[in-house]
Design a protein around this nucleic acid. Structure first.
Lengths: 200, 200
DNA sequence: GCGCTATGTAAACGATTGCTGACTTGTCCA
DNA sequence: TGGACAAGTCAGCAATCGTTTACATAGCGC
């Protein structure tokens, strides 16, 4: 919360909008949609509660905006033509790398459901796009005979990564919860190459 | 809801207690702790709301009872000395077999957090026990040099299975969501043998 | 059959939820 | 420099939450 000498907030619509988005993403990811209250989010952001409704119309709108932002961010972050061999490493970094906290909220948000139909559509679209890229890296092609099998495997890979992220975040289960990037990388490599490149 | 001809409920403490447990497990697994309301649960069970507090003291108490029941059930269901080769098949059955609906609620409940400390302890205990059995099947022994590595892999296996269950249940992501037992079995076999038996 | 207790019901409590309206006040341009 | 509009504040609304309390009655031992 940036304040001037008088203790009143500096006025910056775009800025406070972003503060709300950041706080909301963390809260939604950590607590789930229902358990995260607008008052919690506003307090975290250091912003008045009413501004949530001004900028995002409703709690649902804020959630959708979070999802949309994550969609954009993943679209920019995830390499479109990522070689198969780098996927495990890339996911290990996401799960336990230097900016794991931010990446984790992205992954967790993908399985926080609000029940709202529009948000649900956004959520599934992101998952599908994410899985598509993995399937492509694994040699998937629309017309293939076993295209469905490859896609299924890509989606299972994604589900596994999210499951690991969730269990690490929401449970004090050792050694999983505090395993670092290097410790995770090796099993992830074994696992994902078995899923995505079973015949090489 | 069993009623006699007059429309009044038949009185059966143990019976309605179990009705509440079943309904609660489904609701908690599907909606999460906060989103599942005691009124929803009571309606599903065909039982008066106040009975939740009579039999389980509180919503928290009901949740703990659900977890404890799942713990017992898993303790009886999961074979203590399951051979490594059968784990993938066993999990495939749990995820998409004939009684998948019931097994799914068990798995999903393991990552529904209430925030309450006691419930959290029960939850982690179940997960730990579950992972222990998998690690044991994979040749884990307390004194081993790489005991920690094996345990980490077992926990990642469990996390993956739960992640797949969650994504199947909470998202219309095809083909994953409607894949049947046979379609899941093969990738699961590849995946789990890579995780649990990397050197065979 | 009588009466006691376990079982189930109904209504309401206070707290918290998301949200709204009327309001103050900062900021910037003419 | 003053006025207009955007940005932020404040108090309170109605709805819903978990829970409690007072009451009705079915079922069983005597």
């Amino acid at each position: 919360m940036t304040t001037n000498t008088a203790g009143t907030r500096r006025r910056d619509a775009a800025g406070t909008r972003q503060l709300l988005l950041d706080a909301a993403r963390r809260r939604f990811a950590a607590d789930g949609y229902t358990a995260a209250t607008v008052r919690d989010i506003a307090t975290d952001a250091g912003v008045n509660v009413a501004l949530i409704n001004r900028y995002f119309t409703s709690k649902e709108g804020l959630f959708e905006a979070c999802l949309a932002e994550v969609g954009d961010e993943l679209g920019r972050t995830v390499d479109d033509q990522l070689p198969l061999e780098r996927i495990p490493h890339d996911l290990a970094v996401r799960l336990a790398g230097p900016h794991a906290a931010r990446h984790r909220t992205q992954l967790l948000l993908l399985l926080r459901s609000s029940g709202d139909e529009k948000a649900e559509r956004i959520r599934v679209d992101i998952l599908r796009r994410f899985a598509d890229r993995m399937a492509t890296a694994a040699g998937w092609q629309p017309g293939d005979a076993d295209a469905d099998r490859r896609m299924l495997r890509a989606q299972m890979t994604l589900a596994s990564a999210i499951g690991i992220a969730l269990l690490r975040a929401s449970t004090a289960l050792e050694p999983l919860a505090s395993a670092d990037q290097d410790e995770l990388a090796e099993p992830l490599r074994d696992m994902f190459s078995a899923l995505l490149a079973p015949d090489r």
